[in-house]
């Protein structure tokens, strides 16, 4: 065995444990899910092969159609808002409040992150209650009529999005804050010397330097949003109508309420492909470097 071959062998040996873990916990479930997506399988009976019937059914299923639509709306609402909001708050804390108050705010904003989604969902259900909720009480002070937040199509998904953003902002804030702290102070000092305002510094230094962090935050945000389930489960159960059905909620229903594991695998694989596609599109815009 030549030295190069030996080197290669050692390389393979070092990679092997991680590769085995990936194979067992990632690759095998995906392959298995693909196989099950081609079967009629209710867990209690052995799977029977049905070809692409589940895929055809999925694209005709009104619940799947609604869940696709809602999931995209959910992603398009939550990801930009939570990204921008967490970046702004992180920048303000980094620029103005690098003291005990800033640390206090960071700590407070992280509390929702470690709270259970069911708890957050329940809290927001109470806040947005049509008759006794704080939000309706507050808007009535300025003469706005009470809104049936969780009981009408136009606002139910939005309310779920608000709860999600509130829960996620603290997490992304910490990431952005760490990113801002990594930007060399000399950049800002040079900008000061050149007479740049704080706003100009933010747009010309902070924002470009945060590009890799923003890429990470947007990627995580998109993946999490595509997986939206717990907040919907806690707040609306997919209703009213189909207005808050998301893809993962539909997968859960198909698998555990309707005993259609093969069908659930089909929708799950479609979701997987969508996340891959969206992630690659996003790479085109944010990840070129």
């Amino acid at each position: 065995m030549s030295a190069k071959q030996k080197n290669n062998l050692w390389g393979w040996l070092f990679v092997l444990p991680s590769f085995a873990v990936l194979l067992v916990f990632i690759a095998f479930p995906i392959v298995r899910s693909f196989y099950l997506s081609l079967t009629d399988y209710n867990v209690l009976k052995p799977p029977s092969f049905v070809g692409f019937k589940n895929y055809v059914s999925a694209f005709k299923d009104p619940f799947v159609q609604a869940s696709f639509r809602n999931t995209f709306q959910y992603v398009l609402t939550t990801v930009p808002i939570q990204t921008i909001l967490s970046m702004i708050v992180a920048a303000i804390i980094a620029m103005r409040f690098q003291n005990r108050y800033g640390r206090f705010v960071k700590g407070c904003m992280f509390i929702p992150v470690i709270s259970s989604s069911v708890l957050v969902g329940t809290l927001f259900t109470l806040l947005f209650d049509s008759t006794k909720g704080v939000v309706n009480s507050a808007i009535s002070l300025v003469g706005i009529a009470p809104v049936n937040w969780l009981g009408q199509k136009s606002t139910a998904l939005l309310t779920v999005c608000i709860a999600t953003i509130w829960k996620n902002v603290g997490y992304f804030l910490v990431i952005f804050y760490a990113g801002i702290m990594d930007i060399p102070m000399s950049y800002y000092e040079a900008a000061e010397v050149d007479g740049a305002s704080k706003l100009q510094q933010f747009f010309s230094i902070t924002l470009p330097c945060l590009k890799p962090i923003t890429y990470l935050v947007v990627t995580l945000g998109i993946i999490w949003s595509f997986q939206a389930f717990d907040m919907v489960y806690a707040m609306t159960q997919g209703g009213p109508g189909k207005s808050t059905y998301t893809m993962v909620y539909t997968i859960y229903n198909a698998a555990f309420r309707e005993y259609r594991m093969g069908y659930a695998c089909t929708v799950a694989l479609v979701l997987f492909v969508f996340i891959l596609v969206v992630n690659n599109i996003q790479k085109l815009f944010l990840g070129r470097e």
Partner: peptide, 21 residues
């Protein structure tokens, strides 16, 4: 067979009825 699915669809459609959809 499929009673849970039918119930889910029925409830969802009746909710839509209640929302005038």
């Amino acid at each position: 067979a499929n009673f849970s699915q039918i119930e889910a669809a029925l409830y969802s459609n009746l909710q839509s009825m209640m929302m005038d959809d």
